[in-house]
């Protein structure tokens, strides 16, 4: 198992190199706008634009820029400085990541707590009225875009602007970039609405996924055997049925969590949550290439590492996977 993990970690380095190269090529060779012109302010003289190009190294060939970037990254673990604010990309990411982590973890707890029970009930009561009602609800959850749902939630429920006040602080994220880990009392209320909105569609997806997966498992011979042995239905479903269902759920969860940690862009924008999603969005808008690179690399790293974690957990849960891995 250790050799397997080591092999995967080496691949992680290769994959990150590919991700950084592709990102660099996309944003440097096909920029949405000229970063020097965007930085130069109103009505700049050509000299000012040229000076900024020189400052950023944009006057050098792209491969020189990329090699310098890699050199800084590998030798000094330095992700560079923002073209817009001249702050360190690394420190900005360190400041933003806990915020996104708070949002993602809150949403995960909600969607697992809501989605899995709904999926189980639907699978057990498959075809009945309660199953149909729950699945229609899930369909609505999947169909409602997070952006729209977020705005509706804000207008209806946010403390400051809503007509149905929820409670103090909801919908207004502290501007200092506090996270659940640094100031839970201030951040937790502000996270309720964004987490609910973010969790809504995921809960629906998980409910449908668990229902489909568990339905299949419940039709297996070993489940029939368990029932024939006289086990309680709760034990059959939750112990024997859900153990098999848990493997694909864990896989899905790992991937979804990875994507979320890269930034839940729409929800972060609607609720003004200063996390990785908003950072990426603003960086792309301003052609802030070092910041984009940093955000993409982090997203890539998180997804790759979570994939690794998922594979290891899968191996622990399923002996067949374990033997294949080793």
């Amino acid at each position: 198992m250790a050799a397997y993990v080591l092999r995967r970690l080496l691949w992680t380095v290769v994959l990150l190199a590919v991700v950084s190269f592709v990102t660099f090529v996309v944003f440097v060779q096909m920029p949405s706008a000229d970063p020097a012109l965007l930085r130069a302010g109103r009505n700049p003289t050509p000299e000012v634009v040229a000076a900024i190009r020189e400052q950023f190294g944009l006057d050098q060939p792209w491969y020189v820029q990329y090699l310098k970037y890699l050199q800084q990254l590998v030798l000094h673990h330095d992700l560079g400085y923002s073209y817009q604010s001249n702050v360190s990309v690394g420190s900005e990411i360190v400041a933003r990541l806990p915020v996104t982590l708070s949002l993602a973890l809150g949403a995960v707890v909600i969607w697992l707590a809501v989605g899995i029970p709904i999926g189980i009930v639907s699978a057990v009561r498959r075809g009945r009225v309660s199953d149909r009602l729950l699945m229609v609800g899930a369909l609505v959850g999947i169909s409602a875009p997070a952006y729209w749902l977020g705005l509706v939630a804000l207008y209806l429920l946010s403390k400051d602007i809503g007509v149905l006040p929820l409670f103090e602080g909801s919908g207004a994220y502290p501007t200092g970039g506090e996270s659940l880990f640094t100031d839970p009392a201030r951040v937790a209320p502000a996270l309720v609405l964004p987490c609910l909105v973010l969790a809504a569609s995921f809960a629906a997806i998980y409910a449908r996924f668990v229902r489909a997966s568990l339905s299949e498992v419940l039709a297996e011979d070993y489940i029939r055997t368990a029932r024939a042995k006289g086990l309680r239905e709760r034990t059959v479903v939750l112990k024997h049925g859900m153990r098999s269902t848990a493997v694909p759920v864990v896989t899905l969860l790992g991937l979804d969590l990875g994507i979320l940690l890269g930034g839940a862009i729409l929800v972060e924008i609607v609720f003004n949550v200063p996390g990785m999603g908003r950072l990426s969005y603003e960086a792309i808008q301003r052609a802030d290439i070092p910041m984009i690179q940093g955000a993409v690399l982090l997203g890539g790293l998180v997804i790759i590492l979570l994939n690794l974690v998922v594979d290891v957990v899968q191996a622990l849960l399923d002996p067949r996977v374990r033997s294949a891995a080793t």
């Binding site: 302010g41 009505n43 700049p44 000012v48 040229a50 000076a51 400052q55």
Partner: peptide, 25 residues
Amino acid sequence: TKQVPSGYAAAYFGSIAGTPAKPNS
């Protein structure tokens, strides 16, 4: 100076004697 690329320094104050012919470089 090249370190402080003011977008308007040359536009407004470029007529001051002794300012660099090629500002911000």
